[in-house]
């Protein structure tokens, strides 16, 4: 007979594991990926593939040769980072090599430099994305036209579109009235925006696809409703107030939450377990802060979009939120 195993209780474990959680997130990202491929064609697929492969590769190299510890590429977390990074860049041919740099920064600086999965204070994919946004501002804001399945040249995409947020930012800069811009022909309709028929980073365009993934994650209890609801709700209410005060200068709240990265950010990046608070109350504050900062940056910041910055700023507050927001103790 074998030796008896001895340990303290309990002697059973639920079938939860980090690996399962990460693969569930990957699965939840598939609808958004499919939409991106449907709208942006081969480039979307290639950018995602390169991003994922380089993230996994960099993690493997760093664990094997720099940290000299067992490699953990099969836990799926590098793939999540890779997918999210790809989702946050435009699906253009130039991105095919730029995204590799993003992957290096995301995995190397965003994650492994802190000791790997679970120890990073900031969402690695967003670290990569913000690095790219600052380093390659032109390439990162050159949006492909929706429906351009096969670019004529692989290396140059002349057919650049624009995001609704970009159009509005430009309009406000030129002193135009927002309600006029909204009525213009460049602007996609609300339904188009919901389905994803607009310019933008490849993963963020379709609110529908993101919601499908988010509902799956909610059902599998990978995420809880607190952060997405607080995030989107705050953004909606805050931008709604601004819109009521001055509809000439501010965008209406429905458009606010459906355009740009709010949906993707609220459902997939702000809910990243590692970098968000653990207690429900902390999650609500976290989501509130994200929503508020996003609207502030969008309306008064230099960039047309502020989701990444908002989440990164709130990431830095997470340790404090974990300290302040304690679960309610039994009989207290």
């Amino acid at each position: 007979m074998n030796l008896l195993n001895i340990s303290g209780s309990p002697h059973v474990h639920s079938d939860e594991s980090t690996k399962k959680i990460m693969w569930r997130v990957n699965l939840a990202l598939v609808p958004a990926l499919l939409v991106a491929i449907a709208y942006f064609g081969v480039n979307a697929l290639l950018v995602s593939l390169i991003s994922v492969v380089s993230c996994v590769l960099f993690q493997w190299l760093m664990e094997k040769f720099i940290l000299k510890q067992p490699t953990t590429i099969w836990d799926g977390s590098a793939i999540v980072t890779g997918l999210l990074l790809a989702f946050n860049v435009p699906a253009t041919a130039q991105m095919l090599w730029i995204v590799v740099i993003g992957a290096l920064v995301a995995i190397g600086i965003g994650k492994m430099s802190f000791g790997g999965l679970g120890k990073n204070p900031f969402n690695p994919a967003l670290v990569g994305r913000v690095f790219l946004l600052i380093s390659f501002p032109v390439q990162m804001t050159t949006w492909p036209k929706v429906g351009a399945w096969f670019p004529t040249h692989l290396m140059t995409d002349a057919n650049s579109g624009a995001t609704p947020l970009g159009i509005i930012k430009e309009a406000v800069k030129n002193g135009q009235n927002i309600s006029d811009v909204m009525a213009s022909a460049d602007m996609p309709s609300l339904m188009q925006i919901f389905l994803g028929h607009m310019g933008g980073s490849m993963g963020e365009i379709s609110a529908l696809a993101i919601l499908i993934g988010a509902i799956y994650l909610l059902c599998r209890k990978v995420i809880s409703w607190h952060i997405p609801v607080a995030f989107i709700g705050t953004a909606f209410i805050f931008s709604g107030i601004l819109w009521l005060v001055n509809p000439e200068k501010f965008m209406d709240p429905t458009m606010t939450i459906l355009t740009g990265g709010i949906m993707l950010g609220a459902c997939f990046m702000a809910t990243d377990m590692v970098t968000s608070p653990m207690a429900k109350s902390g999650q609500l504050i976290f989501g509130f802060g994200c929503g508020l900062l996003t609207v502030v940056i969008r309306n008064w910041g230099a960039y047309p979009e502020g989701v990444s910055f908002a989440i990164l700023i709130m990431n830095s507050v997470t340790p404090l939120l974990n300290r302040w927001c304690k679960p309610k103790r039994f009989a207290c």
């Binding site: 030796l3 008896l4 195993n5 001895i6 340990s7 303290g8």
Partner: peptide
């Protein structure tokens, strides 16, 4: 030659309380 396999927390202080 060991007689059992300890599978819990790698801490002598804890193991001492188990067996």
């Amino acid at each position: 030659q060991r007689r059992s396999n300890y599978d819990g927390l790698r801490s002598c202080a804890f193991q001492n309380t188990v067996y």
